[in-house]
Design a protein around this nucleic acid. Structure first.
Length: 424
DNA sequence: TGAAACGTTATG
DNA sequence: CATAACGTTTCA
């Protein structure tokens, strides 16, 4: 508790975006949380949202205001992306401060934008101090965002592959046992309803894993009892359709990012804090700072060009990696094959990435859901859950302020990005 | 360490 | 005011 920041009072909390597929979906009625809901006949103690409805891009509450000026986000009052960024509220994953980038005195370029979560970044200040989301928490204090934030958002990470399917039927929070203090209602359903066999609601919990496994595990949550028909294939196709949309989005994003980069370059005032690398890496503890090595041969499809791109970006102080999610881009299949090893996913995988002024970037495939229940609207536990897919951004970049290696950096950046566009 | 419970906040 | 749910705390 320390007081770092208002913990007791108005603790900023994120709310659902209401736009992503997850938000628009209806409760599955089968997961633990659904079962707990009163509407599904549960005790209502858990007070959690349906596992299938976990928002993929939680947004800041409307009541959020800038820590500095006290104003709300005003990104919608301007046109240019740069301005939008400056006027939008950004929440630091480390100190939790919400502020307008424009209200900061320091260069915004120092901030590390997390494009998985709207309006989320690691503010320049925290960065300078070398803090990382992990560092600050692991010490002894509590886990502020360590747990609360990152893990909460389905940022994904590695799934404990171990469990996952293990407990199949055990749900039913019925009957006694864990009751902390108030025992108001009792279990009406004495254990006789075991229904579904495959209720493995536990797999996505907080940190779901993104990539590859998606397809295979997607059907986990419920159903698809039929089982037989290749769920994977179905999912893949669905994803594919979605991917096309995504593709254009990606492109736009890229372009925006490009613009932003240029802007930032110009802005990147004072000194190039050379030692920026330390923090970033430590946080993710993974990626090697070394540019080249970092990017593993991810997708064969990209071939060497991708690698080169990464290398170049890295040299410029950027590091990029294409993490396409299952549905993001067309390489769904490819990804599926060799994704398993990338990202060891440590606790918090805040990835630095392209900016994303808008709280959007959803992912889900939009008109797909072949398997989706026709009328899931009714709160009946029978709906077959659609393949749960979640993804984030496809292209993620992290940029740190590295001393420009060469005078022609801008050009390089441009070129590189251009290449990226092509590749994508 | 993970799951459940619960206080508190966000929003209609 | 009621409901949904986030984030934290506590239990197993």
């Amino acid at each position: 508790m320390s007081g770092s920041k208002a913990l007791g009072g108005a603790r900023r909390r994120r709310t659902r975006c209401r736009r992503c597929q997850a938000c628009m979906r209806t409760e599955c009625g089968e997961c633990h949380f659904c079962k707990d809901m009163k509407k599904f006949g549960g005790p209502g103690r858990m007070k959690q949202s349906c596992l299938l409805r976990q928002c993929t891009a939680p947004v800041l509450p409307h009541t959020a205001v800038c820590f500095a000026c006290g104003e709300a986000g005003k990104e919608d009052t301007v046109e240019s992306e740069e301005e939008k960024f400056s006027l939008s509220l950004m929440e630091c994953t480390i100190c939790n401060e919400i502020i307008h980038p424009s209200c900061l005195k320091m260069g915004k370029s120092e901030g590390i934008i997390n494009d998985e979560i709207p309006n989320c970044w690691e503010c320049p200040k925290c960065h300078k101090e070398g803090k990382t989301s992990k560092d600050q928490t692991d010490g002894l204090g509590k886990r502020r965002m360590d747990n609360g934030e990152v893990s909460r958002w389905k940022l994904t990470d590695e799934p404990p592959a171990s469990k996952k399917k293990s407990l199949s039927v055990e749900d039913a929070p019925r009957s006694d046992g864990p009751k902390r203090k108030k025992e108001k209602e009792l279990p009406q359903d004495s254990g006789s309803k075991k229904k579904i066999k495959g209720a493995r609601e536990k797999h996505l919990k907080k940190k779901v894993k993104p990539n590859s496994s998606d397809s295979s595990e997607a059907n986990g949550p419920n159903s698809s009892s039929g089982g037989g028909h290749g769920s994977g294939t179905a999912a893949a196709s669905a994803l594919l359709s979605a991917s096309q949309d995504q593709r254009s989005h990606q492109r736009e994003k890229l372009e925006r990012f490009k613009r932003m980069c240029q802007l930032l370059e110009r802005v990147r005032d004072s000194s190039s804090s050379s030692s920026s690398s330390s923090e970033s890496d430590s946080e993710s503890d993974s990626d090697s700072p070394s540019p080249i090595a970092a990017s593993e041969p991810s997708s064969p499809a990209y071939g060497g060009s991708a690698r080169e791109r990464n290398r170049r970006l890295a040299e410029l102080g950027f590091s990029a990696s294409e993490e396409s999610e299952g549905e993001s881009v067309a390489e769904v299949e490819v990804e599926g094959v060799e994704e398993p090893q990338r990202r060891r996913g440590d606790g918090a995988r805040v990835r630095r990435a392209a900016l994303e002024p808008e709280p959007e970037e959803e992912e889900e495939g939009v008109g797909d859901h072949r398997a989706a229940p026709a009328a899931p609207a009714s709160p009946q536990p029978n709906t077959q859950t659609p393949p749960f897919t979640h993804t984030h951004s496809t292209v993620q970049m992290r940029f740190t302020s590295a001393p420009p290696p060469s005078p022609c950096m801008n050009q390089s950046v441009t070129l590189t990005l251009g290449a990226a566009l092509i590749i994508l």
